[in-house]
Design a protein around this nucleic acid. Structure first.
Lengths: 112, 112
DNA sequence: TCGGCATATGGCTATTATGCCATGAGACAA
DNA sequence: TTGTCTCATGGCATAATAGCCATATGCCGA
């Protein structure tokens, strides 16, 4: 039996998933997602929050948009970004659990 | 009001989250997580599944372990890896939704 | 003890990611 | 038209990743 048969998904499918995960794997991008969770924000607002060069923030936004995680709306000279999906909750919860477990394990190791 | 106040979390917290997300952001590592979801596997089995050099797989495993996502158990000369957390479901579902939405958007664009 | 299997790690190279500066492009007001 | 504000993009330097080979380490069995 070819090894591929033992996998639940194809390599291509894992690559597609990794592309999305990669877009989420940067502190500034997580901050941005949190910031627009309650409502759209323009690039200038996000630039202030992230505290980096405007071009840097713009590139982060392009990465998130390319991954299909956010969408934009242009109004006059501004561009507003918003999440396209509501499912990020599951993502956050997962990350949180890992961090919480790590903390627990760390404390257990300290008390040993 | 300092900008930091406008953030839900501190920069450090976003960095901690990003570190976990980064560990998840590689096709081979996602494949590995899927492979051990049903039960632990040794490095040699995983090496075969991932189809890369044994040293490469070993490094991927070290990254996942360092992030607190998997744990290992040594038995004789083998090392078995297993997930430490059950919460990866939320992560998968999130990624899946994004991909599904992207597909929908793509199809809508085609039919336009 | 010697040899072989299973893993982990160091070293090195190639690729990719990040971030800033400079600049291009569009919208709008004077 | 000109200047300004907002945002996107090209260019470039630096840092981080990924992957392989070679090799060290540990655990047996002969």
């Amino acid at each position: 039996m070819p090894i591929e048969r033992k996998l639940k998904y194809s390599k291509l499918q894992y690559e597609a998933r990794a592309r999305v995960a990669k877009a989420l794997a940067h502190p500034s991008r997580l901050l941005i997602l949190d910031a627009i969770a309650d409502g759209e924000k323009c690039v200038c607002e996000l630039t202030e929050l992230v505290d980096a060069d405007q071009s840097t923030v713009s590139k982060h936004l392009a990465i998130l948009k390319q991954a299909g995680i956010i969408a934009d709306r242009k109004d006059r000279s501004k561009t507003f970004y918003r999440p396209t999906i509501c499912c990020l909750k599951g993502f956050w919860e997962c990350i949180e659990s890992v961090l919480k477990e790590n903390l627990k394990a760390q404390q257990a190791a300290m008390g040993r």
